[in-house]
Design a protein around this nucleic acid. Sequence first.
RNA 1: GGUGGCGUGUCCGAGCGGCCGAAGGAGCGCGCCUCGAAAGCGCGUGUUGGGGAAACUCAACCGUGGGUUCAAAUCCCACCGCCACCGCCA
Length: 422
Amino acid sequence: MIDIKFLRENPELMRVSQTGRGEDPGLVDLVINADEVRREAIVKFEALRAEQNVFSKSVGSAKGDEKTALLEEGKKLSLIVKQAEQLKTQAENSANELLLQLSNILDPSAPIGGEADFKVIENVGTPRDFSKDSFAPKDHVELGKLLGAIDTERGAKVSGARFYYLTGVGALLEFALVNYAISSAMKSGFIPVIPPVLVKPPAMEGTGFLGQAAENVFHLEEDDFYLVGTSEVPLAAFHMDEILNSEKLPLRYAGYSTCFRREAGSYGKDTRGIIRVHQFDKVEMFTFCKPEDAEAEHQRLLQWEKDFLNAMEIPFRVIDVASGDLGSSATRKFDCEAWIPTQNAYREVTSTSNCLEFQARRLNIRMKDGQNTKPVATLNGTLVAIPRMIVAILENHQNSDGTVNVPMALQPFLGMKRFELV
RNA sequence: GGUGGCGUGUCCGAGCGGCCGAAGGAGCGCGCCUCGAAAGCGCGUGUUGGGGAAACUCAACCGUGGGUUCAAAUCCCACCGCCACCGCCA
């Protein structure tokens, strides 16, 4: 949520930001109008209410005929106050509804444009040249079968398209990735968390996933629960309605959870394999910090993501995501894209967003900073999203016979140096 | 799922329908005392919104939402959460 006071004073900045995202700049003026209506309604109601408060007190001490007369008048006043209160509530609700529709203000350094207008920040490592090894790389589906690691056919049989089983070394690889991720996160001061994956509407709304992202969220109609698409949701909502001690910041949490995504509108995209699935596990980093520290923290999160990919010995690049492709909560976002040999392309494997105070305002998470209470900043970043990391590892570290070398960093967690054929 | 109890400020814990934003205590902050500390004493200590340059002032908030009333923390209803016991189950 945007700070209404900031918006009142900087409407032009907000219009520019909305335009940059490809969203409606006219919304800004609707919000400003609604805010004026809201404040007028408040003034009217409060004046009447104050009058009623004074009046009510005089009733108590009166008696006899005088009291009967006062009671009559009180009834009339009561009606008027009630009407004014209703108008006030309506005005507040509609102002709030509009305000919630506004996306976060863009970071001025974020590249403007659509999905394709990202800026490459750096390339790390060099894609392996398979012609030098004189064999054509197999894709992860084929490797997964040869190793007994991934079973997409049975996944489809049991749950439908975009489901899979991780079996044998596939399952072990997930455990190793998670253990490696959590143990390195703890070294950086993260608190490990296993959060709930079913959440109630306020958590989902607060994190900003019920706007344009709503179509990708699973909803349990009967119980009004949402299945989270990322543990960002329960981690952000962890401190909902709380006031944090600013001296304890930054607070860093590493959440391990299953993630559920409907993948609506991606029919025909990545239908093969486990690049795009309805359910997967992920270790997510989440930070609560002072707004003035957010930008530096964003760089730190990015660095931890890079460290992870380097430890997996995978070539990748970092992109600065363009304005039109940011989530509504993010002011800026960096993606790490791993090299996928059989696609001859870089594909997103991790992503980190700076939401500044946007989510915190919606979730009512504040900090006590000296005399003042003000919203904190929140940031999130993927440490490892299991299926995509498995794809990257299998495809990049395969040998001509279909066996796969285990990256050094994972060997202690797996107890093996190579995945063998089954 | 059934029955009973409870939900008040950072925490504990009072609260005849008006004088209750709310006693008392703990904690915290400042000061006194002390060589220093503890104890003791004194003072202070919520959030949100509106108006105001500010001092300040007004309004709202006692789980949430409705209702009754001139007036609700206090009465009524619904919902949510917590605790206890019973039933069922991992």
